[in-house]
Write a protein that binds this DNA or RNA. Structure first.
Length: 167
DNA sequence: GCCAACGTTGGC
DNA sequence: GCCAACGTTGGC
């Protein structure tokens, strides 16, 4: 079992879209970076889990958890001249670009913001926190994964306390 | 194979 | 909208 972090711009496709998608599943298409292509094609396995990260938005951060529900297969959007991600170098016989399918596992009640993540000493060496990091998919260590899930549950508990205190 | 120019990402 | 950082392109 491996863990990942996958970035998407919520204005284009966010976790909100995934909650409404058929079978809460979507193809993770449009990746046009070779390092990330190699992860999609060669490394990501069905059953792996990934954080769904919102980038380039008001509150960048982790919005929930998805699982890989289909392993790497050719990204057909590269073959479609009408598509924004069209790449004339890619052909059905020789596809250059790959995608996986992801299925929603959990949407966090609140996004764990980038600022929240940066505040955690235990997460200092996360790839996502390194300056200049531009990969749209990065591996996440089991220790970091567990730590972030703990953060998510703490946020839930503190919310509960606040609700109780108010009532 | 080098490297400058250019395009893109993404936080702020 | 700015800009740092990085990947890609293409001339040589």
């Amino acid at each position: 079992m491996q863990y990942w972090l996958m970035k998407s711009e919520p204005d284009v496709f966010g976790i909100e879209h995934l909650t409404k998608a058929k079978r809460r599943t979507t193809a993770w298409d449009g990746v046009r970076n070779y390092q990330v292509r190699n992860m999609l094609r060669d490394e990501m396995r069905v059953g792996d889990l990934a954080f769904f990260y919102h980038s380039s938005c008001a509150i960048p951060g982790i919005a929930g958890v998805v699982k890989i529900s289909r392993a790497g297969h050719p990204d057909h959007t590269a073959l479609d001249p009408e598509n924004d991600h069209y790449d004339p170098r890619s052909t059905p016989e020789n596809p250059i670009w790959y995608m996986v399918d992801v299925t929603l596992v959990e949407r966090f009640e609140h996004v764990i913001s980038l600022a929240d993540l940066r505040a955690e000493q235990a997460l200092q060496d996360m790839l996502i926190l390194r300056r200049g990091n531009r990969l749209s998919i990065t591996p996440v260590s089991p220790a970091h994964w567990r730590h972030i899930l703990k953060l998510a549950s703490h946020i839930r508990k503190s919310d509960t306390r606040k609700r109780v205190a108010r009532s």
